[in-house]
Computed example of a mutant assay.
Amino acid sequence: MTTWLPTLITQTPQEGYELAVKLSRMTIKITQPDAEARERMRPEYAEDADSLISVSQVVATHFATVAAANGYWTSKS
């Protein structure tokens, strides 16, 4: 497997959130490596509110992890 995640450290919360989204997307890609299968399934969840809420929960969990790794972007002085 190719290394795509060299660090959880980001400069800003915005970058941290973008990393959280990437983590979520990579989880799906690794779990279902067949791009055609992912495309076939997309219409099923794209219009499903429960599925979209679930995605938000997964991103939030990843964002909490990234935020913790970054000390919540606060100075420790």
Rank of each mutant, 00 (worst) to 15 (best):
G71Y: 05
I30R: 12
S51M: 07
E39M: 04
K22T: 12
L19T: 01
D50V: 08
A20W: 00
S77A: 15
A67P: 05
E36L: 08
Q14I: 09
E15V: 08
V21R: 12
T65C: 03
T7M: 04
T7W: 06
R40E: 09
T3P: 07
V55S: 09
I9W: 03
T12P: 08
A67Y: 03
E36H: 04
L5C: 13
V58E: 14
P43I: 00
T61H: 12
H62C: 02
A20K: 00
P43Y: 00
T2G: 01
Y17K: 09
W73L: 13
L5N: 11
P43W: 00
Y72W: 13
M26Q: 14
L19F: 02
R42G: 03
T27K: 06
S77E: 15
S75P: 13
E36G: 14
F63Y: 14
I53H: 09
V55H: 08
V21L: 06
G71L: 05
S54P: 00
E15T: 02
W73F: 15
V21S: 04
T10V: 02
L8M: 07
V59F: 06
S51C: 10
F63M: 11
Y72F: 15
A35P: 06
I53D: 06
A37M: 07
T12G: 02
V58F: 05
T10F: 08
M1A: 14
Q32V: 11
A60V: 03
L8Y: 04
A60N: 13
A46H: 09
I9C: 03
S75K: 13
A64K: 05
Q57F: 03
T74R: 15
T3S: 04
P33N: 05
N70H: 01
V21C: 05
E39D: 10
E15H: 11
R40T: 06
V21P: 07
A68T: 11
A49K: 14
L23W: 02
I30D: 14
V55Y: 05
G16Q: 06
E47Y: 05
P43N: 01
P13M: 11
A37K: 10
E18Y: 04
D50G: 03
F63A: 08
V55D: 12
D48A: 08
A46Y: 02
E39W: 00
A67V: 01
M41Q: 07
